[in-house]
Design a protein around this nucleic acid. Structure first.
Lengths: 343, 343
DNA sequence: CTGTTAGCGCGTTCAG
DNA sequence: CTGAACGCGCTAACAG
């Protein structure tokens, strides 16, 4: 059916070994022969069989990408960047969505299924159980984590504690005292690390300013617009609502802004809101946020994996921390209540 | 290195053929033998080599997904649905982003590279050149288009002409006469079909109402928030601005709403806006929109492909049209200017 | 119901 | 610089 390397060899009048060498750019092939082989290969429309090559070499030229979501902003961005970088180096991207939680607890993911299917694995903020992580390690494949770091594997992420601290310090600098926090619901089993860290940053900044975090102002919600909205509603309903809130993701922050509007209040006069991500719609909302470049994280992770695959073992245990930037827009300000002494 | 089928055969005391049959659930295997094989396979941690199976059968159990974008809402939704449905049937998803336009014209995509790598292809609103389409057809693989339909291949989409008509009729029913249209820039090379159709629906509805579409009110922009914002700004700057606008995607509609706000106007009092998609943030904006379920389209396409692969040739040339629904929220209404006779 | 055997298409020694 | 021959791990006849 399909044209094989033998067909090319035969019509080019050389052996299959020569075709293989010529086409893969290996040395020890006369330029004339190489040219002939290239020509007849393209004349015949020869496409090497990937599976045959894999079977022969053990290498798949495929990278597995493990993700809990594909349509969520952060993940989609990361996947796009990974795909672009991998394809540029001739690698295929095998997309593997880790099954959703059926009833709270998702079926254990079996890393063994990746054996002999990929040369490396990128893990996108998937909260793996210890067993799953061990299984992944047992594969002895280059492993890169995005948005989390795990000992003994490469990782690319931002300093999430720093993110929380930056956002909170911004609010403190504006004169706010009652600063709330809306984090990701720990029940939702993804990206936990990031949200735990961001919360820690919030607390740390408050403490450094001599304030003690108020339990009532520390809430969490689903990592969605609706979750942020509900959480903010709760905060605003408090007897002493916060004058500023650090929301641990832009999507939740959008919801929080809606809750502010619903309550008949305004930002930043009545309450300041700062998010994290710089989601593409953040500018639309005028949302002040701590920007992270997911695209760069994705590309960096891909390059780490690729260079490890290329035999540069330098990265094999590297933990890369990418910078973040506070983007001040219009949802944060001194605020009327913050300026007036309220004691 | 890895444990092979021979290892299993040997330690189970049977032949490789029996192991193969037993593990794949083929008939003509004694239940006792099957049980033994299963046990020793799992004891040994046997994982079949996919490439060996592919080489032997010619089938890859992989479906290629061709997409121009992965992080855009519509595409991410579709990919997620496809992945879920494919994985449920044991198929891998090979993600292939068609390279972006370098300078307007992207490098031709070569479908031959898919040969021997996938069993079927899903094409997500990629505007293919005739040559590319022919190349894809020459693969003789099951082909499913999402968001567009092409003769001689399966497709799943919504009735985009109907979408444009529905949105426009809604506006007409509210009493609007000067109804604008913001479409996708034809220069942007994706999803063109859908945007052409939606525009046609707009025109058709106007004509059916005895109105003739006003050229000044028919604009287009980049398929982004910024694009919609710019386009709407232009419309509002007109001497006789529209009192209602049909925006061909929610993302653009978000931008349009911003432009309305920027101009010191309000929806729906000053201008009504209706979008398309029901983007996850549409509710937040109170945006009236024509909803389409991308997830269902993705699942349907996957199932068509899968059943064709399973040998049910019923679908081989099926064109599925999924329903859409007008979701009336708060960005559309009679509007002050529409109600007052303006002659 | 089970075993034997011959490929699938390529990479890779090892000779020349 | 080039060719011959083997093996990667599995499936699919064909025998039995």
């Amino acid at each position: 059916m399909a044209v094989t390397i033998d067909d090319v060899a035969r019509t080019a009048g050389v052996s299959t070994a020569t075709v293989s060498r010529a086409l893969r750019g290996l040395p020890h092939v006369h330029e004339r022969t190489r040219a002939v082989v290239h020509r007849t290969a393209s004349d015949l429309g020869y496409v090497p069989s990937k599976s045959a090559a894999t079977l022969a070499t053990g290498r798949t030229r495929t990278v597995g990408v493990l993700t809990p979501h594909v349509a969520k902003w952060w993940f989609a961005q990361a996947i796009e960047a990974l795909e672009d970088e991998l394809r540029a180096s001739g690698y295929d991207l095998l997309l593997l969505a880790v099954p959703r939680a059926a009833a709270g607890r998702r079926p254990a993911f079996d890393p063994e299924q990746l054996r002999q299917r990929v040369d490396a694995v990128a893990v996108l903020s998937v909260p793996l159980t210890g067993g799953e992580l061990d299984g992944l390690r047992r594969l002895h494949l280059p492993l890169a984590f995005l948005g989390a770091s795990v000992s003994g594997a490469m990782s690319v992420r931002v300093d999430d504690v720093g993110v929380g601290r930056t956002a909170t310090e911004h609010l403190l600098a504006l004169g706010h005292i009652r600063i709330g926090h809306i984090g990701g619901d720990p029940e939702e089993a993804w990206n936990v690390h990031a949200f735990v860290d961001r919360r820690a940053g919030w607390m740390s900044a408050l403490r450094a300013a001599g304030l003690s975090p108020d339990h009532d102002l520390d809430v969490s919600g689903a990592l969605t617009v609706a979750g942020g909205r509900a959480a903010m509603s709760g905060l605003l309903a408090l007897e002493q609502p916060p004058t500023a809130v650090f929301v641990a993701s832009d999507e939740m922050a959008f919801g929080a802004l809606t809750a502010v509007r619903d309550a008949g209040l305004r930002t930043p006069q009545d309450v300041s809101v700062v998010g994290v991500d710089d989601h593409e719609l953040a500018e639309l909302f005028g949302l002040t946020t701590v920007r992270q470049s997911v695209e760069e994280q994705g590309r960096a992770a891909a390059r780490m994996l690729l260079s490890t695959l290329a035999g540069t073992p330098a990265h094999s245990n590297e933990h890369l921390l990418l910078p973040t930037t506070l983007l001040q827009r219009v949802t944060t300000g001194p605020g009327a209540r913050a300026v007036l002494p309220d004691r």
